[in-house]
Design a protein around this nucleic acid. Structure first.
Lengths: 141, 141
DNA sequence: CTAATCTTTCCTGTGACAGGAAGGTCAAGT
DNA sequence: ACTTGACCTTCCTGTCACAGGAAAGATTAG
């Protein structure tokens, strides 16, 4: 039989914690593995390849449900690569959006940090910029 | 009394959902507000300012515990602005690190998307690049 | 007085696992 | 054969920062 492993061997081969390997089967992301007479999970090479696939997809920022979708494509090679490209492009756009958000965040905070003397005096532009006492939102009359 | 509001007024003034306003008091991030005879929470302007402070800090990516720390500085103006600068600089570094991670992620995925024809043929570089059948990790002999 | 709109507390769910307890199993050494 | 230690199983709880909703009481407008 092509590599029948217990869960720790499979988890090492897949590069995932055993907990995560069990979890992925629990939520039905990957099919539940066969069991030994004593109830131990038996993983074969094909299962491990699926786990590796999921690990890499997760590293790419795909959510579990996106992984589910990708696994469907991965298993059904008759599907067009256009589907895969669509999903990956969507993910790419999300990444780019997140990058822009992080950029403006970074710039604004860097501006505050630059303006901060960083000495022992209590007046701090960072605190003020975050909405401190000098920046009351609205208290007329 | 300077603006005694119920929770919905305070939440509007602070720009936070009422649920979140309650939550912040529950976890002790902000002090628990006074109550009316019927048990309604009463917020004053100072409380609202603290909530605004927290909201802005959260928007800057500070975690709740970092907000806790910052609130301590915000309330104790005797503390040096160096402390604030240190915390903000740390956060700035984390943001920059995340940016780099996102960048390499983006580049790698974009490379795969570029290589993908996006047609109806089943051979997809994205799937392969994610560890598909053509990319077996290790199965010698 | 009634009806609508507050407010309260409490419980559950989210995403993607991690940590740990209680108990069964396996392989090696003595 | 027995013990030891490492492994496996299930199940429960905790994480983070809330969101959703149920059930019940309070307030306000008409």
């Amino acid at each position: 039989m092509p590599g029948s492993m217990n869960i720790s061997a499979a988890s090492k081969a897949a590069g995932l914690p055993a907990k995560t390997v069990r979890y992925y089967a629990d939520i039905g992301l990957v099919p539940a593995p066969a069991r030994s007479q004593a109830g131990y999970r038996n993983y074969d090479d094909a299962s491990v390849r699926k786990l590796v696939f999921v690990r890499r997809a997760r590293e790419f920022g795909f959510s579990i449900s996106e992984c589910r979708e990708l696994l469907g494509l991965y298993q059904d090679r008759r599907r067009s690569s256009a589907d895969v490209k669509r999903i990956a492009t969507l993910r790419l756009k999300k990444i780019a959006k997140k990058q822009h958000e992080l950029q403006s965040l970074h710039d604004e905070l860097a501006h505050l940090v630059d303006a901060c003397r960083g000495d022992d005096r209590p007046d701090c532009p960072i605190i003020n910029g975050l909405g401190g006492p000098g920046d009351r939102p609205c208290s007329p009359s």
